[in-house]
Nucleic acid binder design. Structure first.
Lengths: 168, 168
DNA sequence: TGTTATTCGGATATATATTGTCCGAATTAA
DNA sequence: TTAATTCGGACAATATATATCCGAATAACA
């Protein structure tokens, strides 16, 4: 039971994209270099964000990624689901129907108790992540950062971003 | 992010062991056959339960497994942790320290916000599973079972169990 | 309007973790 | 003492996660 590293990378990239000025984007290579992670694999995570409607991509020269909607509307669960998928972590294989004393299928209308308990726990997990938005994360980062750190990031952004072409 | 099948098997096996009369045990092969799963792999899960202090094993002829403590004191989280381990699902690799604008190590005394959010969510998950004990699961099974089913299981248990030798 | 540089997107390899199997060590009944 | 039985950890096969590459698409520029 472990969460893909891609989730961590995607989350950091998403927080980074909050800081993008209107009409600008960051290419996958830049986001990967900023976090010092393999470019192609970071690109894959960004593609997943794009498919999920969280990020918006522009191809060609001066292309790149930016958030597709307001950061207040993007939760940590949205990021996680985009990368890991929506399938539940606990997969019930209905072994109660197996073996010498297996239950008949018709007696299994309501779900297995063990599966139910995990479903409740996973819901609690999801709901917790849903309460955390990208702006919450960004706000805490700003609170803890030292001033010089912020200007460093600002300068880096300025040097890496270019006005996007018409992002239709 | 998926939970091992072993957790499902171990949970079902643990519930089964509640029904064991005092001083009796079930061998791994029987528990596997009862649920129609590979013997050796079921055995592996039972070993994990044993290591975690949840089950108690007896070797040699007429050996087998039984619960090591009252079922009220065994939660679904205990089972899960015994199989999957206690390591958190989200692994923070501190990529905030990487790259051109990476934070200095001394500025990272408090944990990364993203990691913190996942820690909270995982705690909610754990706490939910901790509220469910083996007796809760067994009670619900009994409620939903048909009478003939119960006698079937009783007969099967009678035919499979033998008095354990002195379980030191 | 063609050409070229640039960037995303999905198909393709490698590494790691999960799933499944086997044989020896330990214990007990006879 | 012997032999049957069962657990325990070491070993192999499969599935998933990680990492990479190359073609398709787009936009800037001449």
């Amino acid at each position: 039971m472990q969460i893909s590293k891609g989730v961590e990378w995607a989350a950091h990239a998403a927080v980074m994209m909050i800081a993008l000025p209107e009409g600008r984007g960051l290419k996958a290579e830049a986001l990967a270099r900023y976090h010092d992670v393999p470019t192609a694999y970071m690109a894959k995570q960004l593609q997943a964000l794009s498919k999920a409607g969280i990020a918006q991509s522009s191809r060609g020269a001066h292309g790149g990624y930016r958030l597709a909607k307001p950061a207040t509307g993007i939760s940590l669960w949205d990021i996680t689901a985009a990368i890991e998928g929506h399938a539940p972590a606990f997969r019930c294989t209905e072994i109660r129907q197996n073996g010498p004393c297996g239950l008949k299928r018709k007696d299994c209308r309501n779900p297995c108790q063990i599966a139910s308990a995990f479903a409740v726990a996973e819901r609690a997990f999801r709901d917790s992540l849903k309460t955390v938005t990208l702006v919450d994360l960004a706000a805490q980062v700003l609170q803890n950062a030292r001033p010089e750190q912020l200007s460093d990031v600002g300068n880096w952004l300025e040097s890496e971003t270019m006005p996007l072409s018409d992002t239709s």
